[in-house]
Design a protein around this nucleic acid. Structure first.
Lengths: 168, 168
DNA sequence: TCAAACTTTCAAAAATTTTTGAAAGTTTAT
DNA sequence: ATAAACTTTCAAAAATTTTTGAAAGTTTGA
């Protein structure tokens, strides 16, 4: 397989995976494009490469910056904005973990904490099932939260090293 | 807060979280409903509770069974089918991990392995960036794969116990 | 100050996903 | 064999998400 074809395959696969995980396909594709491009690209170049509109490119890049995955670069003496993706995989994973924790896990944890406090009679199967389920899910969500927190602070090699020590 | 309201809140929150993670909101809601219901429910009861159509209920329940999260129960002397959700949180997490690994991670790993093999000249920044990025992502994806595999085989308390020993 | 170069906005259109519900299919009891 | 009880299917409709592109906005240099 040649490089250009391989790049397209990567972009396609990344887009698909993104869409399966609740991330807009185009956003994942723009990210993938920047990940396999050594230097920063202009909006124009991204539009061209992926055949998307200016509006879409602009919006997607803004969101990628919001996720902390892409940054704007400027070249001396040029007005154009260039977009560049951090290519460190561990940084990317941490950044995504950090954002999803904040945006999705934290709100759910807040609700679960409330629901855990609902009072009732354990003799009523309805209440008992509700309470047990919510309490259990809350515990698991808190464990996930703590694990993500640790991951955010960790060094990649240490993290995987420790994980693999666990089950050998 | 009273139980009925709390149930609705839980169903809503679960539906929202699901939709953010690429799982159909209704499917997550049906799952949530069954999770807080002590006994098995009929299609009719689910339709009623969540105000959804027969077709939708049927399709959603079939999918939940496909994910291994819900099973059909039969009551002696009745023709109706009853649907029941396993309420063990660790089982649920493992089941979801298992399915997503099979459906989403494995196909991506296959593509990444191929892309890793693409030959080129490391003097060309384009090739070098592509190769480095894809190789790195491949490594990370393999680590995730191994971790999930371990999780699938693990006992809940042992798993979290080991994780927490890591960062204390 | 002006206009060229560039970015952002957002209402409307397109694409995609989800839902509906009536009809077709199946199973069971008589 | 039939009808009642129940489940499944799927084309069309509705809802939602994504994309477009032209107009408005901004910045810069002359």
């Amino acid at each position: 397989m040649e490089l250009p074809e391989a790049k397209l395959k990567f972009i396609e696969a990344w887009g698909k995976l993104g869409s399966e995980w609740g991330i807009n396909r185009t956003m994942a594709q723009v990210h993938a494009l920047l990940l396999v491009t050594p230097d920063a690209l202009t909006t124009e170049e991204i539009m061209e490469s992926l055949s998307i509109s200016r509006g879409n490119a602009n919006m997607t890049l803004r969101e990628l910056m919001g996720w902390g995955l892409v940054e704007k670069h400027h070249k001396a003496g040029e007005r154009k904005e260039y977009f560049f993706a951090d290519k460190n995989t561990w940084n990317i994973a941490r950044q995504v973990a950090k954002e999803r924790r904040k945006r999705e896990l934290e709100p759910v944890l807040k609700i679960l904490d409330e629901l855990t406090k609902v009072k009732g009679d354990n003799k009523h199967p309805d209440y008992k099932t509700f309470n047990t389920t919510v309490t259990d899910i809350n515990k698991m969500a808190k464990n996930v939260d703590k694990t993500l927190d640790a991951m955010l602070k960790a060094e990649e090699s240490w993290f995987w090293g420790s994980i693999f020590k666990m089950f050998k």
